[in-house]
Structure formats: C-alpha cells, structure tokens
Design a protein around this nucleic acid. Sequence first.
DNA 1: AATAGAAACGGACCATAGTCCGTTTAGATC
DNA 2: GATCTAAACGGACTATGGTCCGTTTCTATT
Lengths: 197, 197
Amino acid sequence: MRPPLPLRDAAERSDAARNRERLLSAARELIGECGAAGLTMDRLAEQAGVGKGTVFRRFGSRAGLMLTLLSDSEAAFQERFMFGPPPLGPGAPGLERLIAFGEERIAYIIEFGELALAAEDATHGRSQPPAAALWHRHIEVLLREEGFDADPWLMARSLAATLAPDRLLNLLQVHGVSAGRLGATWRDLVTRVVSGA
Amino acid sequence: MRPPLPLRDAAERSDAARNRERLLSAARELIGECGAAGLTMDRLAEQAGVGKGTVFRRFGSRAGLMLTLLSDSEAAFQERFMFGPPPLGPGAPGLERLIAFGEERIAYIIEFGELALAAEDATHGRSQPPAAALWHRHIEVLLREEGFDADPWLMARSLAATLAPDRLLNLLQVHGVSAGRLGATWRDLVTRVVSGA
DNA sequence: AATAGAAACGGACCATAGTCCGTTTAGATC
DNA sequence: GATCTAAACGGACTATGGTCCGTTTCTATT
C-alpha cells in the first residue's frame, strides 16, 4: 500500500521540461519574426513540434504565455524599485521615487510594451498581471510616505492607470509622443498630487 | 445614357432600413436577457431573422453595433457637458466643470458601462470610441481655462485614463468601490492638478 | 525488469468574430 | 409593366483562442 502520496512540489517530468523549453524558444523565435501580436497558439505548437493541448496545459492561455516570457524582465523591474539604488529604490524621498517609478515604467513599456499588452487581455481586461498589485501597493506606500491621506489606495490605482501599456503604446506609436514628454507629464501629475497633500 | 450617377447620401433602401430596425431591437432584447457580454453576432443574426453577413454589413463589427446602441445616450451626455446647465455645462468655473464631468462620467459608466466596455475592444484597444476625442478635448480646454500650461493635451489624456470604463467597472464590481469614493478621488485628483498650476 | 498510476500528450472539437462571393431585390428608368 | 443595376442579402468559410478526452510516457515502487 502507501499510495505514492504526491509530494508537494514534485519535480517536473523530464518530457514536460523539454517541451517547455521548446515552446519558449519557439515563441521567442516567432515573436522575433512576426511580433508578439502575430504569434498564434497554433503556429507556436506547430513550430515547437508539440500538440496544441500541450501549449495550453503549460501556459493556460495566450496571456499566460506572454506573462511567462515577461517574467524575467518583470522580476528585474520589481527588484529595482523595491531593493535597488535610489532614486528608484529605497533611500530617496517618496516623491522622487514616484517620479523615477513612472519614468522606469515608461522605459519598460517602450522595451517590452508589445509583450505586456499581449499579456493583458486575458479574456479582455479581466485579471491584470499579478505584478500590477505590487505596483499599486508601491505607489500607495509612497503616497502615504508623502503624507497623502485621502484614499491613497484608490489614488494609487488612478495614477497607475496613467501608465497602462495600451495607453502608453497608443500615445507613443499612434500619436508620436516622446518618452520624455510622457515622463514630464507623469512627473507633473505626481508632483501636484503629492504637493497638494 | 446618363448612368444613374449615385446621388450623395442616397436614401437607405427599404429592406435595409427594416433589417436595421430588426437588428437593433433584437440586440436590445438579447442584451436584456444575457447582458451585453453575452450577445454573440450569430445569435443576433438568428434572432433578427437575417443572415450574418447582413449584421456585419450594417455595423461593421461587434464594437460598431455596441457603439450604435450607445449613440443616443452618448449624444445626450455630450449635449449635457457641452451645452447643458452648470456646473457640468458652461457657466461654472473650469475646476467645477471638471469635477462635475468626472462625476457624470462615473454615473454614466454605472448605467451603460457594460455596453461601453463592449464598444471598446474593436480589435483590442485600437481606435477608441470617436467620442473619446471630444472628452479629451473638453478636459484639455478646461485645464487651460484654469491656467494649466504644461502640456494640457497630454495631461487631459492622463486624467481621462482614470475614467476608462474597464477600470471603473473593475473597481465598482470587483473591488466594491462606491461611486461616491470614485467621485471623491477624481475630485481630489483634478483639484490638485489644477491648483498646482 | 515488471508494474501501476499519475502526469503529460495530441489533435479533434467548439465558440465566436469577421470575410467572401454568388444570389436576390428594391426601385429608378424607359 | 419590363428591364437593369447597384445595393443588400445570406450563409458557407476562415482564423483563432480555448477545451476535452482517449492515448502515451515517465518514474517511483516492488
């Protein structure tokens, strides 16, 4: 007796690991050729030489795949604003950190925006990237630090809405707005919100 | 000779008009039953007793249909903030009009948000409702009126991002935020932005 | 090595938005 | 009323994200 009693965190099966690698590298290749928007799950499965079911078992959805592809750069971004050097990381005044956060986010979107956008429409706007909760919290904490007392939770989300990938990409690509101009308006916005406190 | 030379703005053919009415009333009925999110173009065609091609010929896309369904209430909303009584319409100071605008918009989303949301993802976030340009412009003008000189165009869009249907609906429905709280944060936001000028 | 059962696999299948094109029809002209 | 043409029609077809479930494969256990 003693049925295997699945140990938590059992190691990934070797075929699963191999297929995951195949899928990720095929995805990067396809995105290199056609852009993130041009990647279809069928083509990905074909390119990786696995069945379509395997793709979805692995990543859950198209958005999940994109999230996986982003996870490294996301983690690095989080690391920087949570533990990195000032003014983005701890050590600088809240307002400066807020300003730096927006500027970094804008730079991030310029680099990874297409992926970030594709990672968002998990069934159309539902469930944002899990990382979003962190940004919100981060902004909220900085607002509080600057003495913003009136509903910092909601104000943090309002400010974060300003940095959403779809909006930023639209401004950058469709309207030809420069990163500098986006950064300046962000700085202006958070400065006024904080200084009015 | 003299080939018909299609007069501009030729009257709509009677069968076309009849089918448009059928489609709109079928759409309202289906939305009443299943909600806007539950309306599919196939079911709409079936319910209206027309072919699917007719549906798309008429409205162009699902988003186009939703836009058509919204057009009356949109027009009324525009009318109110452009020509209606203060504080929403002209006659009140810019800041008060801004505050009223946000509050009206929040109320609008509470009433028509589901439709507005469905009207947005025309091929995922591209081309916002044409009305958006008007709101942006409106906010921009009010900002200028209050002496906001640094990039009012972009700041107007940043503020408008705060009122996007998907965000407001998410806060209202998922997070249980009240309309009053949304309104208060909007008021706070625009007040600080304007008063820093 | 044999075995068993959990995990992974694959691809047919489904739902839905949107396109295409051969057919029908309104309505203007003669 | 017959005719003609542009507009409208309809529904089969495509593309794509996502699901289902019978089959295969890995690996721990004996």
